[in-house]
């Protein structure tokens, strides 16, 4: 089957730092793919190029077989790519529900409507989405008052509002307690499976990654050093050396 997303020899340097260095990988339709790597490995840089926020220095990105190189975030969003940010970003001066309503209005192409008030527009759909991510009870609160974990959930709802084909999640569980992390990833996994969405996500918690990802790719200092299922990655000597240092952490896991 043709992959949904194909990344070919992607490169990006900041000054002398090769943040992403000749990275190639593919993501099949319906896959739940984890991108892992130590801090500064180039994961977020990779994401920023995938959604058009950063222009790559070289390489190509194909979505459904077509290059999306040179397109901006909005055009890539139009082609069905949603994303969440490492530092969660929602609109603080709107209520939680209005946040999702605006995402739905944007999806419907109604951003430039000047007359009909937002209040009742897509309210039901917004509440349903919030229900999906477990945030319905807080729908009326100003978004800026939310706890960080809840902001992450709302962000997920925002990204789902446009019914994307591909969802990019940059550390969706950063700043959460371990139990919460597992819950959120399970939730995300269930939601995308129901909707037939493919996912690329980064995550620092190995427990979460090994428990949920169908396939894993590993970046270190901008280079892709391994890919495969959880067992392959755990056994990979290169991964153990460069990523886990002494490999103690893995040893503990296996024990």
């Amino acid at each position: 089957m043709k992959p949904l997303l194909e990344v070919r020899n992607l490169r990006k340097a900041f000054g002398g730092v090769r943040a992403v260095d000749d990275v190639s990988f593919a993501l099949a339709e319906g896959e739940f793919l984890a991108l892992i790597g130590p801090n500064g490995a180039g994961k977020s840089t990779c994401f920023n190029m995938l959604n058009g926020q950063l222009a790559p220095d070289g390489g190509d990105i194909l979505l459904g077989g077509k290059s999306i190189l040179g397109l901006g975030p909005r055009q890539i969003w139009k082609r069905g790519v949603g994303r969440t940010f490492q530092v969660a970003a929602i609109w603080g001066s709107l209520t939680v529900c209005e946040n999702v309503q605006i995402a739905l209005l944007a999806h419907a192409g109604e951003v430039f409507r000047l007359w009909r008030p937002v209040a009742a527009r897509y309210r039901e759909e917004a509440l349903a989405l919030l229900g999906d991510v477990g945030m319905q009870a807080q729908a009326q609160r100003p978004a800026r008052e939310l706890a960080y974990g809840d902001v992450k959930r709302v962000e997920l709802a925002l990204a789902l509002a446009s019914r994307p084909r591909l969802l990019l999640m940059d550390e969706p569980t950063a700043g959460m307690a371990p139990r919460e992390r597992n819950e959120l990833i399970s939730l995300a996994r269930r939601l995308v499976r129901e909707r037939g969405i493919s996912v690329l996500f980064t995550e620092h918690s190995m427990d979460v990654v090994f428990a949920h990802a169908e396939r894993i790719i590993v970046l270190a200092r901008g280079r892709l050093i391994a890919q495969g299922d959880a067992a392959t990655i755990q056994a990979d000597p290169k991964v153990q050396e460069t990523y886990f240092g002494s490999g103690r952490m893995l040893a503990r896991r296996r024990a």
């Binding site: 969003w77 949603g82 929602i90 609109w91 603080g92 605006i102 944007a106």
Partner: peptide, 14 residues
């Protein structure tokens, strides 16, 4: 939305 977080707004199609 564009004022609160332009990044989020662009990534949401605004």
């Amino acid at each position: 939305a564009g004022r609160d977080s332009p990044l989020r707004a662009e990534a949401t199609g605004i």
